[in-house]
Amino acid sequence: MPNDDDWTRPAAMAIPKGGYFEEERGRYGPIFPKTPACYGFSIIAKVIPGREDAIREHGKVLEAAVAADPTVLEVLKLHYLRWQVFPIGDDQYFQYQGIFDTDFDKYTEDAVALFSATGIDTVFTNLEGFPEDWKTNPGAFVEFVRKHHVPSFLEYGEYPYVTADEVKKALRLKAAFSTMLDQMQ
């Protein structure tokens, strides 16, 4: 069993095929396991033909939203997001990789609420099979993600199980010490 309290030692975790050690049920089905990298999921889905530019533009929309309000995505407790568009044959596919601090059910509910409140649509609306009623039907959102999720088989954390808030707190403390030391000189 992982020691969630020991962030001083890097940790790696091999994950069984299928993505679960022991299936735990949440509100929307199985819960993806917590790993040294915290929680997360990766999907690969086919882009609706002609929508690649819309996906890239959506990246600019999120960039502008974060520039205007650096806390706009805070409720998601994100560490990292990575988006990629790539060809397979004549088709374009989108890959979403997200690492965050909450379990998948909470992340989903928070994402649906966030995008509904801000008026920013999810980039997933550009993907084949994404439900039109995603804003009012979190279960449909979850079903899409589960259908397109590609489980990791290894996750690594240089500072395992540390939350995004803990990282920010440590960096604020570092800045405060730095300022104090500068003032002492």
Rank of each mutant, 00 (worst) to 15 (best):
L76S: 12
T102C: 09
D53C: 02
Y93T: 05
L76H: 09
L114R: 13
H58Q: 10
A67C: 05
P87C: 00
D69S: 07
A45S: 13
I44G: 06
V61F: 02
L76T: 11
G50L: 05
G59L: 13
F94R: 02
K46M: 07
Q92Y: 08
D69W: 05
F104D: 15
R82I: 08
R51T: 10
T108P: 01
R56Q: 11
R56F: 10
F41S: 03
I43G: 06
I55S: 04
Y39H: 15
L76D: 06
Y93F: 14
E63P: 03
P36M: 02
A65R: 04
D101S: 05
D90Q: 12
S42F: 13
D53N: 11
G98H: 06
C38F: 07
F104T: 14
G98Y: 05
D105W: 01
E63T: 15
I43Q: 04
I48Y: 02
T71Q: 12
I48W: 04
R56P: 04
F32I: 08
F104P: 05
D53A: 14
D103C: 10
E63F: 13
V112R: 01
Y80E: 14
P33R: 01
H58D: 08
F32A: 03
A64F: 00
K77W: 03
W83Q: 12
E52C: 10
P87F: 00
T71M: 11
A37T: 00
A67G: 07
K60T: 04
P36C: 01
D91K: 07
Q92H: 06
I88M: 09
A113I: 08
V75E: 10
D110F: 12
A54Y: 11
A111Y: 14
C38N: 14
E63I: 08
A67F: 01
H58Y: 03
K34E: 14
V66E: 02
L81E: 09
Y39V: 10
L78N: 12
F86H: 08
Y96K: 05
F115S: 07
E63W: 09
S116W: 06
P33T: 05
P33E: 02
D69M: 05
Y39N: 15
K34Q: 11
D91M: 01
D91E: 14
K60P: 00
F32E: 03
D110E: 15
A37E: 04
Y80K: 15
V75G: 08
A45P: 03
A54L: 09
P36N: 01
Y107D: 02
A37M: 05
T102I: 07
I55Y: 04
V61N: 03
L78E: 03
G50V: 04
I55R: 05
F115Q: 10
P33L: 06
D103A: 06
Y80L: 13
K77R: 15
I88N: 06
Q95W: 02
P70E: 04
V112Q: 01
F32Y: 08
F100M: 12
W83S: 09
C38M: 15
Q97I: 07
V75R: 11
K34P: 03
P87V: 00
A111R: 14
R82L: 12
V75A: 13
F94K: 02
L114I: 12
D53Y: 07
S42A: 14
A68M: 09
C38T: 12
H79D: 02
Q92N: 10
E52W: 01
A54R: 15
Q84C: 09
Y93L: 04
Q95S: 10
V85C: 12
S116V: 03
